Amino acid sequence: MASAERAWSGAGRITGPADVARVIAEVNAAGLGRDRTAALARSVATADDVALMGPDASRTLPVLPGLADLFPVGGLRRGSVITATGSTSLLMALIAPVVAAGSWAAVAGMPDFGVLAAITDYGIASERLALVPAPGPDWPTVVAALLDGFDLVVAATAGGPPADSVVRSLAARARQRGSVLIAASPWTGTDLTVELVARQWIGLGAGRGRLRLMHSSVASYGA
């Protein structure tokens, strides 16, 4: 790296106490800047070390065994933002094991979520599930507040995907709090997309019968 010597002349000349005080202030300011740079470098190094380590169960929320292969770490990585679309059943399947493990979940912007189905079909404990059916136009603030207190937050937005700046802000909040944010409507800039691509109902015969089983095909892909 090339270096340059400072020519102490004119404004840079030390001619009295005032000049000494000014130079000391400049040196102290430069030293403070180096300290901050060193602290940042230590933080980056620590983040790199964590990235090189294997999956940590404390840094993931559980998923159903049949869905584990869809996620790079075998579960919902804390601090991540995921898009999950195609079916409310998929969302319930993601929420169920998280709540069963003792965590708390919240759903915002889904007035037709289907609490009865969540409880009876997926065994989601209602006392660990918070619903905000209509968060209103200031929904990012509501979702950010939910990320502060819940391990898993599902959010749906109407009228198209939110601005990239909103997604980045919520992603930063999720990383800071160690929570997981699932977008139930198409968002851009998320870490992973999980989508129900096909389903088949079993049980109906030739115009009669009862639905007994549903086979679902789910795919995932990176941002």
Rank of each mutant, 00 (worst) to 15 (best):
M1V: 14
M1W: 15
S3F: 15
S3P: 04
S3Y: 15
S3D: 13
E5G: 14
W8H: 13
W8K: 09
S9G: 13
S9W: 15
G10L: 10
G12H: 14
T15G: 11
A18D: 14
A18E: 13
D19K: 08
V20G: 05
A21P: 08
R22K: 14
I24C: 11
A25T: 12
V27N: 03
N28H: 13
A29D: 15
G31R: 12
G31I: 09
L32N: 15
G33T: 13
G33S: 13
D35W: 02
A38H: 03
A38C: 03
L40D: 11
R42C: 10
V44C: 01
T46G: 06
D48N: 07
D49Q: 06
V50N: 04
A51M: 06
L52V: 10
M53V: 06
G54N: 12
G54P: 11
P55N: 02
D56Y: 01
D56M: 07
A57F: 12
A57K: 08
A57W: 10
S58W: 11
R59W: 11
T60Y: 04
L61Y: 03
L61C: 06
L61I: 05
P62K: 03
V63C: 06
L64V: 08
L64S: 12
G66P: 06
G66C: 09
G66D: 14
L67F: 14
A68M: 04
F71A: 07
P72L: 10
V73L: 11
V73K: 05
V73Y: 02
G74I: 09
G74K: 09
G74Q: 11
G74E: 12
G75R: 02
R77F: 03
R77D: 07
R77N: 05
R77I: 06
R78L: 09
G79R: 04
S80N: 10
I82G: 03
T85E: 02
G86R: 03
G86F: 05
S87H: 10
S87P: 09
S89K: 10
M92H: 06
L94V: 09
I95N: 00
A96V: 10
A96N: 10
P97M: 12
V98S: 00
V98W: 00
V98D: 01
V99R: 01
V99M: 02
A101F: 06
A101E: 12
A101Y: 07
G102D: 11
S103Y: 01
W104I: 05
W104K: 08
W104V: 06
A105K: 00
A105Y: 00
A106W: 00
A108R: 00
A108I: 00
G109E: 00
G109S: 01
M110K: 07
D112Y: 05
G114F: 01
V115H: 08
V115W: 04
L116M: 14
L116D: 15
A117V: 12
A117Y: 08
A117F: 12
A118V: 03
A118Y: 00
A118N: 05
I119D: 15
D121F: 07
D121A: 15
Y122F: 14
G123L: 02
G123F: 00
G123H: 01
I124W: 03
A125K: 01
A125I: 02
S126F: 01
S126K: 03
E127H: 10
E127T: 12
L129Y: 00
A130N: 09
A130V: 12
